[in-house]
Amino acid sequence: MYSIWDNFFGGSYPIWYLTLDHIGLCVIPILVGFFVSIPLGYLASRSRGARSVLISVFSILYTLPSIVLFVVVPVTLGLAILDPTNVIVALSIYAVAIMVRSSADAFSSVSADVRESARAVGYSPAQRFFQVELPLAGPVLLAGMRIVSVSTVSLATVGVFIGIPSLGLLFTDAFNRQIPLEAVTGIVAVLILALIFDVILSTIARILLPWNRRESRRRAARTASKAVVM
């Protein structure tokens, strides 16, 4: 009989080690999603032309089925076929595709009045960006990042189709050997991992955006929910 206990550290599909593999696939794409889409999103928020080009390009990238990207990326990069970098690159592309739009919206949400005021009191463009616009865009950026992290954790499972181990192995094995408990274990493990990533993100946001806490709860939640629609 399949038992979670026996398969936690042992067996052919050890849950703990697959979880570590899974985390290893997700962290970089989430970071890339953030750091690459900030400049792109900022650019998109400043120019209508840039916005429509960037958003359409990433929308098309996003409609590509993950399985295709997972097959095309290794061919394009010329890396070893079983190199986890292939999955990391594919997931990063998805992360940026989601995040560019959120980040464009985040910077668009900063009102022109505020930017003008910052300029009026003598802020340089860099100061304006780092001390005014970025902090004000923070809550919406956070809402976008939460979607990025959740979807990255969930998508990483598809990597098993090109031989990169993750919690997704629990699904394929459960299907092949017809072990429902193993599949449920895999799904729950992915959900828990997504939750942990989410808690980490909110904690970082709480440290970086202290004023966000003081905002009325309802308003913060509303902001988040609006970003979630997109």
Binding site: I81, I162, G163, L169
Partner: peptide, 11 residues
Amino acid sequence: NIGARAAYIPA
């Protein structure tokens, strides 16, 4: 569990 032949033969 590498996948189908298209994945593991090149490897």
